[in-house]
């Protein structure tokens, strides 16, 4: 295992980012605890082409925004990539809210109902890290304790809220 990882590290740097924006592999997810509704409201800002690549991988066929099955496939991608664990280690069940497409960016909305507090929570966001070695996922958390940022790269494990 160790030896194989060393091989991996040698080559991943060969894909420098291009001069234009199109090849920055970054997603931004906002996780906000709505104390009035007692729900965890999650908004993901994803590059639309990256999302379509992930959907194609999930379903085994190319699908684009607006086609039947696209939302369900996006939800599957998101559920696999984004996990929020409660203090006892149990993952929260995410409910689908919807998505909207703004030319090159897709906004994905999911929520977890019945969340009275986020104390002791951990999370992990691995979206697209299986597709792009340079993928970085930024998560902004807003809850009663304030605002924090957590970033995830491929291979990162759960991090505290």
């Amino acid at each position: 295992m160790r030896r194989w990882l060393a091989v991996v590290m040698l080559l991943t740097g060969l894909v420098p980012v291009a001069a234009d924006a199109h090849k920055f592999y970054v997603s931004l997810t906002t996780v906000e605890h709505n104390t009035a509704e007692q729900s965890l409201e999650i908004t993901m800002r994803l590059f639309a082409d990256d999302l379509e690549a992930a959907v194609a991988r999930e379903t085994g066929k190319p699908l684009t925004h607006g086609q039947p099955g696209f939302e369900a496939a996006v939800f599957a991608v998101v559920r696999r990539a984004l996990t929020v664990r409660q203090a006892d280690g149990q993952p929260l069940t995410l409910a689908w809210v919807g998505l909207e497409n703004k030319v090159d960016v897709t906004w994905v909305y999911v929520e977890a109902p019945r969340v009275p507090s986020t104390t002791g929570f951990t999370l992990r966001d691995t979206i697209f890290t299986d597709l792009f070695p340079e993928q970085v996922n930024m998560v902004h958390v807003k809850d009663a304790r304030g605002r924090r940022a957590i970033d995830f790269r491929g291979g990162d494990s759960f991090k505290p809220f």
């Binding site: 990882l5 590290m9 040698l10 991943t12 070695p133 491929g154």
Partner: peptide, 8 residues
Amino acid sequence: ALTAPAPS
């Protein structure tokens, strides 16, 4: 290459 972070 040497300083690239490990991918997933």
